[in-house]
Simulated assay, not measured.
Amino acid sequence: MATADPFDSALDLLRRLNPKHTSAHLNALINLAPDLTEDLLSSVDQPLAVRRCRQTGRDYLLCDYNRDGDSYRSPWSNEFDPPLQDGGAGPNGGGGGGGDEDENAAGLPSEKVRKMEIKANEAFDLYRELYYEGGVSSVYFWNLDDGFAGVVLLKKVATPGASGEGTWDSIHVFEAIDRARLTQYNLTSTVILSLATNANPALGELDLSGNMTRQVEIELAAENDEQQIANIGRLVEDMELKMRNLLQEVYFGKAKDVVGDLRSVGSLSENARDREAQKDLIGSMRR
């Protein structure tokens, strides 16, 4: 009998636990199996944490792609917090690849890619304000041997109130690979959504949490850096629109149908009387 792989077993367990508490479950698994720490952190999407940049005073998002050990790089200042002691190894602790060797050795993008990163952060900061009317956004780029890669992060937390709360996290990881006259974009997008409400005491509390992942590959013309950023922005915008529509029409619609069939505000006797009255009305119209 083959022995189960501990990493696969950990992923299977996480898929079966409440996605609202993914971070707590992940920390518990890391405590149980410390040797799986890097693999789990790089493979499991979890709600994004927010930190304030010490140099600029602006909030930014933390993820595995701007992490080096216990330090995280701010997209606004390009500095790690806390500062690195002896240099890092790039995104995921594994090196940036290509570009300036000194910058990549410190976990930083090359000068050219950093300039694109700055412009992308400005563009998605505007996108965040227009689409989400609040929240936090962060964009991180790094070098590849045949192009560059990056991640676009967006987070919006609904202000907790007496009736409910909600959190939206979207993570868009992409590769931009240079071809002869086109650039190939490989985009993987994940949305983590958590909603909770107790607005109607008669129905009780509702807690709806989950995540969705979609992928797309496409080739587009990109003659300069500005066009690269425009292409990435268009891909992320289209993917978010599709995923929002799927969540609203499929997942929320299905949940509404299930809850509507299982639970009712009125009593069963009242519902039975309403159905009888409806039958009588239809019968009288047919006479």
Rank of each mutant, 00 (worst) to 15 (best):
E237L: 08
L182Y: 07
A24H: 12
D81P: 00
S9Y: 10
D225P: 03
Y131A: 13
D12I: 02
D68G: 08
A2D: 15
G99V: 03
G93E: 08
N92A: 06
R58V: 04
R67Q: 13
R286C: 04
I282M: 06
R275S: 02
L36W: 07
G164M: 05
F148D: 03
L220P: 06
A2N: 13
F7L: 12
A89T: 06
L195I: 14
D81L: 01
A149V: 02
G99S: 05
R52I: 08
K156C: 10
T56S: 12
L144I: 01
G107L: 04
E165S: 13
S74H: 10
D280T: 01
R52S: 07
T197I: 05
M239T: 03
S138R: 11
A123N: 05
R67K: 12
G134W: 14
Y132C: 08
L281E: 04
Y60L: 05
L84M: 06
D86M: 03
D207P: 00
T188C: 07
R286E: 11
G88A: 00
E38Q: 05
I192M: 14
L14Y: 09
Q215G: 04
K256V: 14
G94A: 00
V157W: 11
V157S: 12
I171Y: 14
M239S: 07
A255C: 12
R54H: 12
A196I: 07
A149G: 07
D35P: 03
N245I: 15
Y185H: 03
D5N: 15
F141M: 06
S284Y: 05
S267Y: 13
Y140N: 09
L126V: 15
S74N: 09
T188P: 09
L241C: 02
K112S: 11
R16E: 11
I192Q: 14
T183W: 03
L13M: 11
Y131D: 12
Q228S: 05
N245T: 14
G94I: 01
V258Y: 04
D45F: 12
T3H: 09
T159I: 11
S264Y: 09
E249L: 10
N271T: 04
G135D: 15
I177Q: 02
L26H: 08
E249G: 04
R286A: 08
G95F: 01
D169C: 12
D238P: 03
F124L: 03
Y132F: 15
G107I: 05
L262M: 06
E79C: 09
G204L: 04
R214N: 04
A202G: 11
K256I: 12
F7D: 08
Y185E: 00
A176I: 01
R287M: 06
D39F: 04
L247N: 13
E237F: 12
R234T: 08
L203T: 15
A180S: 10
S209P: 02
H25F: 14
D86S: 08
L246I: 13
A255Y: 09
D169H: 15
A123H: 06
L206Y: 14
T37N: 06
A277M: 02
N200P: 14
D5Q: 06
R234Y: 07
D64E: 11
S189Q: 02
A272F: 07
